[in-house]
Amino acid sequence: MEINREDIKKSANIAKIYLTQDEISKYMIDLKDMTEEFLDTLKELNISLDTDFDFNTTSLKYTNLRQDIPDNFNNIETIYKNAPKIKNNLFVVPGILRENKK
């Protein structure tokens, strides 16, 4: 599997993590090692690499569902206190409209 700097940059982009050039180089090698080791494992165990796997085979006869009854969460104040930036109980982020306009 070919893994290059762009793959790492794209992943960092999607995962929203700022990376330095050094980190990109280091992670690229680690990621390559990891995927190769995994591909070797598949080969040794004679398992095909594809998305064809049925997650749906658990033989469950039941389904754990909750009754539609509102409960009272009694700790909203702590949620507010945990917030880095909050005004009139609204969470504040940088203007998004402005970013769209750019």
Binding site: F91, G95, I96
Partner: peptide, 13 residues
Amino acid sequence: LFHTNDKVSMIDF
């Protein structure tokens, strides 16, 4: 999301 002005947006969950 509420866009009160250009600088900030506010979130009600």
